[in-house]
Design a protein around this nucleic acid. Structure first.
Length: 951
RNA sequence: GCCCGGGUGGUGAAAUUGGUAGACACAAGGGACUUAAAAUCCCUCGGCGCAAGCCAUACCGGUUCGAUUCCGGUUCCGGGCACCA
């Protein structure tokens, strides 16, 4: 046995052993019936950006710890890995380096695979997959066609960021303060056709099924529920009458058309129903030369309907378009609204602007005239593209009304809050400061001196005022009454609405999965026949930033129509990369032989391994990726082939661990064209204040200042990722893994710093040194004496207590304290006294330490297990459990408090009853001193923990 | 702006979920060993105070015998906001 700890040697040997014995190869379909319970441990697959970063190390070490732990607990474990290989960064790299995205991606995969292997993860590489491989994305295409048949996939227009200079669609990330990142041109909103997946058809199930996921973090379920945003409200209409136009120049709704009629619109995303030309919405040309129409809106607060003072519609709304025909100023304003970003965060924070249309509609209940405004904050894609405005009680409407001098009418009052405040003040229990606090909390409002908005927010206590017959009604009663009255007039009804919108999957990009459709002049849009799948993406394109390179490839575009055989054009849009990542986990499960034949998307292996027993990945995926995966799963469940469902489970991930982000400093500088250039942390010199906080930085290259952007997620685009390779090269994989797990609990955000790596390395050296020094003692395999001398019993008890704690912490995924327990074990063992049974205690306890540590630092534990003769493979050893005989003790120590303050400790017999503890406490010297002769009013006893004397 | 988290020593963090605040480490300082360095080992290490003790878990309040933990408010930081993945 080597005296020195040599990580490189140890790690290479261990990895070679795992490779040759195929230790981590999961059982194939034929063996799936073996009696061990399955444990499918899944980590979110990486985007092959070039190198691993610390977030990957964190993510995959967590997965590996869980995999190895469950394997030792007797589970049949599957832990696969793959590559989320399509995406924008490959195209950016192509523009920069003139290398095809395919080559760049495959090279990155090869390098990152080596890095993963050098970290010793227990992965079944036989099941590796890359989403850019035709044999994988073939099934994206196949399932897309099934969705088209079922009406889950359909076509409508979508709003995109358009760079007028590069003539290309920009991702949100490529829009910097309203301008294109490469050209600096002001970005325009443009409506283009695209394909959507009707996730709203599953909105209800996606929401209610959250209750079937007890293994998911509460916060993720809350975020998903809020995202789906189910609300019951009232959809109602404001009737209006306009001068007749003959209907010819009245605008059509800008969306909702579904090509070929094989798609379906969804109940929850109705077409904008205002539009004059639509049938069944009250559009009637009357004899008097006017046309009647209905302006539909949706509200969750119909109780405030009597406070409506105006309506606001989106710039793309047909009424706006209609009014603009005769109003050049309005037309200019509508045009202005088309500039700028499509992002919700920008929409919500931009200055609210509007302009009157000159059109008045009738209030459906009072008949009063209500003016229609165009508002830049109203989105055509939400609800009806129009809203009622109640400035008295809605902050956004208030801001708008104040700015344009529109009416404000209070219709909600809250007696409850007023009463509560009065009661609290009269009660007298509040201090003067407390009173002020309470008052401030009721009066602190950013935009008005009254309480109207707060009364609106306090749904339990608001009542209607200034609302005629609805006066005095609470929220629910008022909504019910108002909805009934609207219904009686045939002008509205209650409706369930979702915030969730259908999933637009078309991308005007090259490096993605081609959408398998063909456009024929004679036959229209025709699906590519299944037997012609996959539609392969040419792999030698080098995008240049303008337009979609696929459209320029005649060899891709030109094809024969599958229906009539005449020349036709292939669809050049590709799919959103979220499609790729929505089902990769099901593909890992496919038996390798089935996969080689590639005649099916999934097989029996999928139903065996799925749902994944544990999914691990960054919290940034809490909504989109996880929701899309859940949706995709339900679609696969509902699609049948030969009368059989594709999969037989409802949810893809039984348990979810959301890893906290690994953050690092971000440095950037604006380019001449208005874009952003990022600097890696090693390229800048930091300026810090006295407290050590970063306040600025300069570029090492040119000495000029760069902007400090605070800390944020490690990412390729922000260039702030830290490559773990130097860490692995210098200290080894075990140190990197141990350090990462010890640094903080997995769900917590972690600001990157490598201070502490030395400590991890030092600890592993001590583990090795202890094993080396005690080799003879351990190899002797001495029997444990029936009665150990107390000093040795104490060490043994301590190790078993730590083991108990470590096992508890493992169940909570709290790996940092497991690592800490291992360190405490070694601290104890290093001080073990001599005595009868010492060698037996050392052997037993060090064996526990190695097994506890082995999921985190598998290489060193593998080597020591063999060197010290514990067994052939530590992975085959049973997981240690604390022994009752080792834990027994005669006395226990309790904390002694007087009036809640710690005043000392008392020792009592283990398991002493309350009376005995109380007596011992009152007799204690420290208690006597602080009770100052006063009698005990009350004695609180917490068995095994503390006793508190109240005087 | 909206939704979801988080804030504890110089630093990463712990506290068996209402019961000794700061375990275990890192950094720093002091010492031992050494010709020297590295490595290793020992000691100190939240603030104030000679001490008894007092103060202290972002800030302001509340509940409780007892609050890092529960409640109300504020503030700062992070994640998401539908074309980054």
């Amino acid at each position: 046995m080597q005296e020195k700890y040599l990580p490189t040697e140890i790690e290479q040997a261990a990895q070679a052993y795992w490779n040759t014995s195929q230790t981590f190869r999961a059982a194939a379909t034929a063996d799936l019936t073996n009696s061990r319970p399955k444990y499918y441990c899944l980590s979110m697959f990486p985007y092959p950006s070039g190198k691993l970063h610390m977030g990957h190390v964190r993510n995959y070490t967590i997965g590996d710890v869980l995999s190895r732990y469950h394997r030792m607990k007797g589970y049949n474990v599957l832990q696969p890995m793959g590559w989320d290989a399509f995406g924008l960064p490959a195209e950016n790299a192509a523009m920069q380096n003139k290398v095809p995205p395919a080559k760049w991606t495959w090279d990155n995969i090869a390098y990152m695979k080596k890095q993963l292997q050098s970290l010793g993860f227990a992965l079944d590489w036989e099941r590796e997959l890359a989403t850019c491989a035709p044999e994988y994305y073939k099934w994206n295409q196949w399932l897309f066609l099934r969705m088209l048949e079922k009406g889950i996939a359909y076509k409508k227009t979508q709003v995109v960021n358009w760079d007028p200079v590069d003539q290309t669609v920009l991702a949100n990330e490529q829009v910097i303060e309203g301008r294109g990142w490469r050209t600096g041109a002001v970005v325009e909103k443009r409506e283009i056709p695209g394909y959507y997946l009707a996730i709203t058809q599953y909105a209800d199930e996606l929401l209610s099924a959250l209750d079937t996921l007890p293994g998911w973090p509460e916060r993720v379920k809350t975020m998903q529920a809020n995202w789906i945003g189910k609300s019951t409200g009232v959809r109602f209409a404001f009737p209006y009458e306009l001068p007749a136009t003959g209907g010819t120049n009245l605008p059509s709704p800008s969306r909702g058309g579904i090509e070929g009629g094989d798609g379906v619109s969804t109940a929850n995303n109705p077409s904008p129903s205002l539009a004059l030309p639509l049938e069944g919405e009250g559009h009637v040309q009357s004899a008097s030369g006017t046309e009647k129409g209905l302006l539909w809106v949706f509200t969750t607060r119909a109780d405030t309907i009597m406070g409506v003072t105006f309506c606001a519609v989106a710039a793309e709304h047909p009424l706006a378009t209609y009014a603009a025909q005769t109003n050049p100023q309005l037309a200019a304003f509508i045009d202005e609204c088309k500039h700028g970003s499509v992002m919700e965060a920008d929409m919500a924070t931009m200055e609210k602007k509007g302009m009157p249309t000159g059109i008045f509609v009738d209030h459906p209940l009072t008949g009063e005239k209500v003016e229609v405004w165009v508002g830049n904050y109203v989105l055509m894609s939400y609800g009806e593209g129009a809203v009622m405005a109640v400035p008295a009680h809605d902050e956004r409407d208030f801001e708008f009304a104040k700015k344009y001098g529109l009416g404000i009418k209070q219709v909600i009052e809250n007696a409850g809050l007023r009463g509560e405040l009065a009661k609290a003040l009269l009660d007298g229990r509040l201090t003067e400061k407390g009173k002020q606090e309470l008052e401030a909390s009721y009066t602190n409002t950013a935009f008005t001196t009254n309480h109207w908005q707060q009364w609106y927010g306090d749904k339990a206590n608001g009542v209607c005022v200034n609302s005629g017959k609805y006066d005095g009604l609470g929220l629910e009663a008022a909504v019910t009454a108002i909805a009934a009255d609207l219904k009686a007039k045939d002008l509205g009804d209650t409706q369930v609405q979702y915030r969730l919108r259908d999933w637009g999957v078309s991308r005007q990009r090259y490096w993605g999965c081609p959408i398998p459709l063909i456009h024929c002049d004679a036959c229209g849009t025709v699906p590519v026949p299944d037997e012609q799948l996959p539609v392969k993406l040419p792999e030698d394109c080098v995008p240049d930033g303008s337009g979609n390179p696929l459209a320029k490839r005649a060899d891709f575009v030109d094809c024969a129509c599958p229906q009539c055989g005449k020349p036709a054009k292939r669809e050049t849009d590709t799919m959103d990369t979220f499609v790729d990542s929505s089902w990769y986990y099901a593909r890992y499960c496919v038996d390798p032989t089935t996969r080689a034949a590639n005649s099916a998307m999934v097989d029996a292996g999928t139903n065996h391994w799925m749902p994944a027993d544990q999914y691990i990945g960054g919290i940034e995926h809490a909504i989109l990726h996880l929701l899309y995966s859940r949706f995709w799963t339900k679609v696969m469940r509902d699609i049948t082939v030969d009368g059989k469902r594709l999969v037989n489970y409802d949810e893809p991930f039984a348990n979810l661990l959301t890893q906290g982000m690994v953050l690092n400093h971000i440095f950037s500088r604006r380019t001449d064209k208005g874009g952003i250039e990022y600097f890696a942390p090693e390229e800048v010199d930091l300026k810090r204040d006295e407290g050590g906080h970063v306040i600025g930085a300069t570029s090492k290259a040119d000495g000029q200042p760069v902007d400090y952007g605070g800390v944020g997620t490690m990412s390729k685009s922000k260039r702030n990722g830290v490559d773990p390779q130097s860490l692995i090269d210098e200290f080894g994989a075990d140190t990197a893994r141990f350090f990462m797990m010890f640094a903080s609990p997995p769900e917590q955000t972690l600001e990157w710093s490598d201070s502490g790596v030395e400590g991890a390395y030092r600890f592993l050296r001590r583990v090795w040194a202890f094993g080396h020094a005690e080799q003879p003692a351990i190899a002797a395999r001495a029997a444990m004496p029936a009665k150990l001398p107390e000093p040795l019993a104490a060490v043994r008890r301590e190790i078993h207590l730590l083991l108990k704690q470590a096992n508890y912490d493992l169940g909570k995924f709290q790996f940092n304290t497991v690592a800490s327990a291992a360190m405490k074990m070694l601290n104890s063992l290093e001080k073990i006294p001599a005595g009868n049974g010492r060698d037996a205690v050392v052997a037993e306890c060090f064996g526990i330490l190695l097994r506890i540590l082995s999921p985190i630092t598998p290489h060193i534990c593998h080597a020591l297990w063999i060197e010290l003769g514990f067994g052939a493979d530590i992975l085959d050893a049973a997981w240690p459990e604390p022994l009752a005989e080792a834990l027994v003790q005669d006395e226990e120590e309790l904390v002694l408090q007087v009036n809640g303050k710690h005043r000392g400790n008392i020792r009592v017999k283990a398991g002493a009853d309350r009376a005995a503890i109380e007596a011992a406490a009152l007799a204690a010297e420290a208690a006597q001193k602080f009770m100052e002769g006063k009698p005990a009013k009350k004695v609180v006893v917490v068995p095994g923990r503390l006793v508190n004397i109240v005087v």
